[in-house]
Design a protein around this nucleic acid. Structure first.
Length: 219
DNA sequence: ACATTAAGTGATT
DNA sequence: AATCACTTAATGT
């Protein structure tokens, strides 16, 4: 086993040993191939056929639903321990992706071929549970995001968005522009600017160019 | 110093 | 809450 594999095994052990049994971790290391993906890179696009599934070790992936003419909206973020279970089902049925995934913060991931994923479902209980749990979790996130769209006003959505960012980044300092937020929420920059200013005046955030410090957020 | 990009604002729908 | 049109401020070359 080479040096990289050892480091990898350590990372996997640290992050996943609570959920996966040792045998499974060993198999993951055997068949998975390691990749680093830089922030801003496209992971999957709508219509892509998937052959491998990334198991996220580090970083953040932004999952986006896209309307025909460029209109996009962010559904949720994936981080360590997450994997897009939606894509498992895509794989098993050999269907194409319905979502677009962009790397939001540099990602380290292990790519696992789909046929093996299928085998593991039978072979490992912990894997089965992992997939089902993560599917369930995605569903909850989706419902949540539908709720937001349907019932929340823009200012509430913004606050929720910022809260989510803080959680996933493990940092209350966000490097983001009003324009980027506007794109993610599918609104205009002007609107974001005004709401940001409001939140700033209310003392809930601190905003300067390219940077927002979130002082009040949901857990 | 100049150009570019981000953010702020008033008025209108 | 969106859009337009314009200003001001911050930053890069």
């Amino acid at each position: 086993m080479n040096k990289q594999e050892i480091i990898l095994k350590e990372k996997l052990k640290n992050y996943y040993s609570d959920i996966f049994e040792d045998d499974l971790i060993n198999e993951i290391i055997k068949v998975g191939h390691f990749e680093k993906i830089r922030s801003g890179e496209l992971l999957v696009d709508i219509g892509d056929a998937m052959t491998h599934i990334p198991l996220i070790l580090n970083g953040v992936v932004k999952i986006i639903r896209k309307e025909k003419e460029g209109d996009e909206i962010v559904l949720y973020f994936l981080e360590r321990g997450d994997t897009c279970a939606i894509s498992f089902v895509n794989c098993i049925n050999k269907k194409k992706s319905v979502f677009k995934g962009i790397v939001d913060k540099d990602v380290e991931a292990l790519y696992i071929p789909i046929d093996i994923i299928d085998e593991w479902l039978i072979k490992f209980q912990s894997w089965r549970h992992f997939i089902i749990d993560s599917y369930h979790f995605r569903l909850i996130e989706m419902v949540d995001s539908i709720d937001s769209l349907a019932f929340l006003k823009m200012n509430e959505r913004l606050l929720k968005y910022l809260s989510g960012k803080v959680q996933i980044n493990h940092n209350i300092d966000l490097e983001i522009t009003h324009q980027e937020i506007a794109n993610d929420l599918n609104t205009s920059r002007v609107v974001v600017t005004r709401l940001i200013k409001q939140l700033h005046d209310e003392g809930k955030i601190n905003s300067t160019r390219n940077h927002i410090k979130v002082l009040e957020f949901y857990e």
